[in-house]
Amino acid sequence: MKFPPAIAPRPGHILHRFANPGRFLRLASVVQPYLTGIALVLVGIGLGWGLFIAPGDRFQHDAMRIIYIHVPAAWLASSGYFGLAICSILSLVWRHKLADLAAAEISPVGAAITALALVTGSIWGKPMWGAWWVWDARLTSVLVLFFLYLGHIALVRAFDDPERGQRAGAILALVGVVNLPIIKFSVDWWNTLHQPASITLSGSASMDPGILWPLLLSAAGFSLGFAALVMARLRAAVMEWRIRGLLLTRTREAG
């Protein structure tokens, strides 16, 4: 079996043909401070309200205040993976350079936030359920999501030729998409220790408004913060990609 030689990025051609990374850099440097600022303010208000002002639950008392990080983290774990899948389609079908780079930057942030959802859930589960961990359908499927993120991180960085890694990572990410509906509906389809969703699109939130509002603010803040982090990392990735290209041109000109 013959493998083609590793294809180094051809700076001169690619940079001009795909102007988008450059346009992204200009746009992102304008948006970044606003995105970061709004995210910080929303998370600050949401968590401050949730910790000090919002009422405790009638049974769970103060332990349920963990909800203000656990639920946003869990939502982001899934929606971040959805973003990763969209980037994977863009990179597989349209060979979009920016999507390649974005996918590689989403997965570490997604893995961190999934780990956070798992650990805060565990910390909440011990005093309330009486167990750090149980193998019910919801917890197991989120653990699988965490492993999918880890697999993507490793796969994207495992090849000499970055494009090969990005392709393989995209395939893995798309295979893993089956897990998303399993996570979402696990609590409805099967008996689980984890309770069903409190907030549904049909509108009947079984949650007091005094608890719901800080949760929504915190979730919005975490989401914008996730976007801001990915955007900053993507800017760095685009710059690093350019640096590689420039260095390659230099060595070619010198040689």
Partner: peptide, 26 residues
């Protein structure tokens, strides 16, 4: 209280680390 402090502390640690490494890389 210990559980709440642990959860919030861990979150601050993880997100802080992520923000710091991203900022340095950029």
């Amino acid at each position: 209280l210990p559980y709440i402090v642990a959860a919030y502390g861990l979150t601050a640690l993880v997100i802080g680390g992520l923000v710091f490494s991203t900022w340095r890389r950029l």
